[in-house]
Design a protein around this nucleic acid. Structure first.
Lengths: 137, 137
DNA sequence: CTATAATTGCAACATAATTGCATTATAACA
DNA sequence: TGTTATAATGCAATTATGTTGCAATTATAG
C-alpha cells in the first residue's frame, strides 16, 4: 500500500495503517496517539501529524473535521478512491466518537460560477445511541 | 432581540450582532476581533468567546466548523429559526472566507436507531472565484 | 555496502479555546 | 431616582491543536 504510492515503509506508518483498519471509525490525532500509547508506543507528536498529512495528500486516508474543530482520519475505502470520504459522518457531542454513515451519497451542491470545488463533507451531530440513553461511556 | 432571550443588552453583544448583520457571511472569532479592532474597539478575547457561545446556545447565531478547524458564526435567519443554519457553506482554502450557499436544503441523512440528531452541516471547500483565477485577495 | 534522499525527533512557535475568579455594570424593584 | 442581586466582563493562566525549521537518522536504490 505504501509502496504503491512510493512512500517509505516505516514503523509508525505501518502502525497507523494497522490501527485505522482495525477500528472502522475515523480517529483523531490524539486518539491515535493514545491508542498507540496504550500499547507502550510513544511516537513523536509531530511525526504523527506529518504521517497523517501525507496519508491525506496521497488519499490513503480521508480527513473529516468535526464540530469540535478536530480533524479525524479514516482509511479511504478502495471503492471510493479519488473521492474524499464520500459519505456523511456522525459525531457524538458527548463521547466524541465519530462514525461513518456509509452507503449514503453526498448531495450535489450548487456553487457560484468560477468556484473550484475540491471536496465536501456532511457532518451530522448529536448523541449516539449509547450516550442518548444515558449509559456511561 | 437580546431582550427576547432575556439576555442583558451590553455593548459587545450589540456590536457583534451589528457586525454579523452587516456582513452576510459567517465570521470567526478572530475575524470579529479584527473587524472591531479596525474600528478602534478592543474587546476582551475571552468575553467574545463567551458572547459567541451564548449566542449559539440560544440560537441567535449558528456555528459552522471549517476544514481549517475554526468555528465561524452567522446570524440565524428568521425563516430558519430553530434549525441550525440549514444550508450548505463554502470555505475557500486560500483566502479563508466562508460563505453561505443559501436556498439549498440539507439532505436527509439516515442514522443508526437510537441516535439523537441535533443538527448537521454540509461544508463545501476549494477555491472561491477570486482565488481560483489567481487574483490577489 | 554505500550514497542519497526521505523521514524522523526535537525545540520552538502559533493559534484556538477554556477555566477560575475578582470586578463591574445591567436591569429589576423599592 | 437609588439600591441591589446577579449577569457579564476583564484578566491571568492553562490546555489543546497544529505548524515550522533543522539536525540526526534510516529506508531503499544501485
Amino acid at each position: 500500500m505504501l509502496r504503491e504510492k512510493s512512500m517509505r515503509n516505516t514503523v509508525l506508518r505501518r502502525r497507523v495503517l494497522e490501527l485505522l483498519s482495525e477500528r472502522q471509525e475515523p480517529m483523531s490525532h490524539s486518539e491515535i496517539l493514545d491508542a498507540l500509547a496504550a500499547q507502550g508506543e510513544t511516537p513523536d507528536r509531530v511525526t504523527l501529524y506529518r504521517t497523517l498529512s501525507v496519508f491525506s495528500d496521497v488519499r490513503i486516508v480521508h480527513e473529516i473535521h468535526g464540530t469540535d474543530g478536530v480533524a479525524r482520519f479514516c482509511l479511504q475505502e478502495p471503492s471510493h478512491t479519488g473521492c474524499l470520504g464520500n459519505h456523511p459522518h456522525f459525531l457524538c457531542r458527548r463521547c466524541g466518537r465519530m462514525s461513518c454513515l456509509s452507503d449514503q451519497p453526498l448531495p450535489y451542491v450548487a456553487v457560484p460560477a468560477g468556484t473550484l470545488v475540491e471536496g465536501k463533507q456532511l457532518l451530522v451531530f448529536g448523541l449516539c445511541p449509547r450516550c442518548a440513553t444515558g449509559k456511561e461511556i
